[in-house]
Design a protein around this nucleic acid. Structure first.
Lengths: 337, 337
DNA sequence: ACAAGCTATGTAACTAGTTACATTTGGCGG
DNA sequence: CCGCCAAATGTAACTAGTTACATAGCTTGT
């Protein structure tokens, strides 16, 4: 048997030798079969089959200068908002015949910079990062490699990279103004970690400047579990707020759950509002009033932007997505009781 | 300026020329800096900086025969169970200095086979698929490329590829037996699509052979929304079950929500059980009794298995993870009311 | 009948690195 | 003062494809 001796993978030359043709002909069979006579094509094809030849991706990439891979850096995959976003990203990228490499950073810019380097090492043609807080190393890498790179989940036309995202401050403001319009003036704010999460920071910034509301801040990890804990802290605080503004639906879900467990009715006793509009948020009890973030459209737009940048060299302009209030059951007027 | 004229990326030879050294020396500066004198290293480094030289990933890959990329094929990213799983996978793979390319299949084996091909085209060194239902093309591809490939979320020692997963039939059985032990005998089963979802199929198979229970099946899309609709169907059925067994927590969440909306108390009037144990399932109201699937450990084990296969050529043996019942508030004895 | 033209194929030079082997250089011991 | 050895560096051949250009062979037109 011819193939039993060949320990390692066959290459073009091996195929050419077996088929008694030149390497060029084999290459043509693979890439433009019509330019080869039916006869030789059959011979080459059988040689390919016999040797179990599979063309090397690396060798192709070296010639084309293309890897057809783009990298995305996200804090975590284990959060519905990023998962949805990446799902849309992957789907749209695949329409451009690009593959998506995912790297998680745990929200740590140092890890981010390292993982960005490994993305470059595997030949990523483009980079997608989350937010606008990054290590200088990341910018240097992007600059040095002349790498198409966009920042998402954040809108800031002033930023070094094109941003494709929404107005986080605005989302916070919308939520707060909804509560204020309902008559709430003492409001608990539950937010995720502030260290190097610029989206959270921006949302908090959006809450500033409303002197008609007193805000009390509670920090929590971004989990349902910690939302529950935050609710406990709120309930044991000296001054009871009439509303809870959560900067993420995940936290709001926890708050809702804990309030229910404690027998405190929402929205009658306390109103709760979130930000994100996760798929499940319409089906909590009571259903959650929240600020919808268009992550799917953002993922699609990001994919289009980076693809065209890679493909045509056209650097995208920044894109702002509207966020909008989704009023459900968890908020009500302070006075309607 | 020297670099303003150079339109395209500099390569090793350009650097060597500028630094007046040989290509070998430049290569050494990059890969084993200690074997180069401090002096030349400085000269080469400055040439690298001047030309903004970035080594080509493809050229490296062609020599090493390594791409350091593994591909995962999942039905969707937009589902907590897969997102968690991929999160664990990515994290553990990165400890082996491997990157994860994610491709989604929408549960369609044909799409899966196509995407597997694109993963091979970008040079993936290993493949991770979900379940055991695939197109022949996929197997041919794996065979032809001699590609390390494992199947996950499913345990079947007989399967062509090594499987790393849990006993789906067993998970279904555990849920059913819990309900039976509580005295339920008329049980509604809510399941996702049956077409080419072998995990759902296996879970249903696990429900068979229990003659002491009458099962009524309801099919739904895998979303909270469709869980709600399923609950409506159940309620309008001629014979009311005393328990609902959902083959996924997502569906159970919808059922729970709809029952609450209709004013039917869980577990007093109807018990509800799920399978998955999603992060949020402990915080529904009532909290959801479910069968825990160890997706995080499965992700880690899969990463280890595929990494060692790629790295050392040791084909992994199949791995079975235990699933276990997590009793919370949504189930109770039929007679305890 | 012979040049033109087309198709099919081959040759060899590219792509951009790594690396085995050869060579130079310098220090040190005898 | 010569030779030996090691460190430092260079040469050229690899890795595995693609492709520009050359050429062989055949058909067709005048």
């Amino acid at each position: 048997m011819a193939n039993s001796r060949s320990r390692k993978r066959a290459n073009l030359r091996d195929v050419a030798k077996l088929a008694k043709v030149s390497v060029a002909t084999v290459s043509r069979v693979l890439n433009s079969p019509d330019s080869v006579s039916e006869n030789t094509r059959a011979i080459v094809d059988s040689a390919i089959a016999q040797l179990r030849f599979v063309p090397s991706a690396a060798a192709r990439a070296i010639n084309s200068g293309r890897s057809r891979v783009v990298g995305a850096l996200v804090p975590t995959l284990d959060h519905a908002i990023f998962a949805r976003y990446l799902a849309a990203l992957e789907q749209t990228l695949s329409e451009y015949r690009l593959s998506l490499v995912v790297a998680t950073t745990s929200g740590d810019p140092t890890i981010e910079a390292q993982k960005a380097q490994t993305l470059v090492d595997i030949g990523a043609e483009g980079l997608i990062v989350s937010g606008i807080t990054h290590e200088p190393e990341l910018y240097e890498l992007i600059e040095r490699c002349q790498l198409p790179a966009v920042a998402t989940s954040y809108y800031d036309p002033e930023f070094l990279l094109p941003t494709i995202g929404y107005d986080n401050a605005g989302a916070g403001r919308i939520a707060l103004e909804h509560l204020i319009s309902l008559g709430h003036s003492k409001i608990a704010v539950v937010h995720g970690s502030l260290t190097s999460n610029d989206r959270t920071l921006a949302r908090i910034r959006g809450l500033e400047g409303h002197d008609d509301a007193e805000l009390i801040y509670f920090e929590a990890d971004l989990s349902v579990e910690d939302g529950c804990k935050a609710a406990q802290s709120i309930l044991s605080a000296t001054q009871q707020p009439t509303a809870v503004l959560c900067l993420s639906d995940v936290l709001a879900t926890g708050v809702l759950y804990e309030l229910k467990r404690k027998g405190i009715s929402v929205p009658e006793a306390i109103s709760v509002i979130g930000i994100d509009d996760l798929p499940g948020s319409a089906h909590t009890s009571p259903s959650l009033t929240t600020v919808h973030l268009p992550v799917v459209r953002m993922g699609q737009a990001t994919a289009v932007a980076i693809s065209e940048w890679i493909e045509n060299g056209t650097e995208p302009s920044e894109k702002l997505f509207e966020t909008d209030l989704v009023i459900r059951e968890s908020t009500s007027s302070r006075f309607s009781v």
